[in-house]
Amino acid sequence: MEKEELREKCIYYIRNKRRKKFLILFLIYQLMFFITVVLSLNFQLINIVYLIYCLDVDIIVSIFTYILIYKKPKKNKNKDILMMFSLNVYPEIQFLIDKDDFLIGRKIDLVNGYIENQDVISKIHARIIRVGNNFFIKDEESLNGTYLNDKKINEYDVIPLKIGDIVKLANIEFKIK
């Protein structure tokens, strides 16, 4: 029961992040529309009233209502960190996971945890998510798979991590500490 609750919290966190991205993109679109209309109206005062009418007030009001009603997750000031140490690669690879969203892969400018000189690792291989003081792992549609304690993680699964777990990214094993 407790694992299911943690999984639901993690899924809630991912959906929350997607909603925020959508709102930001939508507000940018509305701002661009506003600027375009203002420039086309040559800053005449009577046309400003027309501009407000054109901005589709219903959509803007619904967005602000959504923002006001939407519950934000509680912030915990004493957040845990997680350490990952490679077991079968020399030199040893270590990750200190102290962010809420930590990407691991071989594309240095896309990930937080960079694994170099390993062609079996995808550009973005796995994601570690922190919700409160709990950590979860998710496979990011990697070619060679992500495993937790020798069980393959499906691309839509979000699995809780605990101290002592063995995470395998393709053929590289990591121990959670």
Rank of each mutant, 00 (worst) to 15 (best):
residue 45 L to S: 15
residue 82 L to R: 03
residue 126 A to I: 02
residue 25 L to S: 15
residue 53 Y to S: 14
residue 58 D to A: 11
residue 156 Y to F: 12
residue 98 D to M: 09
residue 171 N to V: 14
residue 62 S to W: 05
residue 11 I to T: 09
residue 32 M to F: 14
residue 147 Y to N: 02
residue 143 L to R: 10
residue 96 L to Y: 12
residue 98 D to T: 09
residue 49 V to I: 15
residue 177 K to W: 03
residue 165 D to V: 03
residue 101 D to I: 06
residue 168 K to F: 07
residue 68 L to Y: 06
residue 117 N to Y: 11
residue 167 V to H: 09
residue 5 E to V: 09
residue 148 L to N: 04
residue 100 D to T: 10
residue 105 G to Y: 03
residue 88 N to F: 14
residue 103 L to C: 00
residue 119 D to N: 08
residue 34 F to G: 00
residue 140 E to V: 00
residue 6 L to V: 07
residue 121 I to H: 05
residue 96 L to W: 04
residue 80 D to A: 06
residue 140 E to P: 00
residue 63 I to W: 01
residue 117 N to P: 05
residue 30 Q to W: 14
residue 154 N to M: 12
residue 23 L to E: 07
residue 145 G to C: 02
residue 16 N to F: 10
residue 134 N to K: 04
residue 88 N to D: 15
residue 5 E to T: 02
residue 22 F to C: 05
residue 150 D to Y: 13
residue 5 E to F: 01
residue 66 Y to Q: 07
residue 103 L to Y: 08
residue 35 I to L: 13
residue 90 Y to H: 12
residue 129 I to V: 12
residue 117 N to G: 08
residue 129 I to Q: 03
residue 157 D to V: 01
residue 81 I to D: 04
residue 129 I to R: 01
residue 74 K to Q: 09
residue 46 I to H: 14
residue 64 F to D: 02
residue 34 F to S: 03
residue 41 L to T: 11
residue 50 Y to P: 00
residue 117 N to L: 13
residue 125 H to T: 01
residue 106 R to D: 01
residue 177 K to G: 07
residue 91 P to Q: 10
residue 21 K to P: 00
residue 93 I to K: 04
residue 17 K to L: 12
residue 84 M to K: 04
residue 145 G to S: 01
residue 23 L to M: 13
residue 54 C to M: 14
residue 89 V to K: 07
residue 99 K to A: 06
residue 8 E to D: 13
residue 4 E to M: 01
residue 96 L to A: 04
residue 88 N to L: 14
residue 150 D to W: 10
residue 82 L to N: 04
residue 138 K to C: 06
residue 41 L to C: 03
residue 55 L to S: 13
residue 50 Y to M: 09
residue 144 N to Y: 09
residue 175 K to W: 02
residue 106 R to K: 15
residue 88 N to E: 15
residue 172 I to N: 03
residue 27 L to W: 09
residue 16 N to R: 10
residue 164 G to H: 09
residue 15 R to T: 11
residue 113 G to Y: 06
residue 19 R to W: 04
residue 32 M to Y: 10
residue 69 I to R: 15
residue 137 I to K: 08
residue 94 Q to N: 10
residue 19 R to C: 04
residue 143 L to T: 14
residue 102 F to T: 07
residue 150 D to F: 11
residue 30 Q to G: 01
residue 121 I to K: 07
residue 163 I to K: 15
residue 112 N to A: 05
residue 52 I to W: 11
residue 113 G to D: 05
residue 170 A to I: 05
residue 110 L to Q: 12
residue 115 I to L: 12
residue 73 P to N: 12
residue 148 L to H: 02
residue 167 V to G: 03
residue 113 G to L: 08
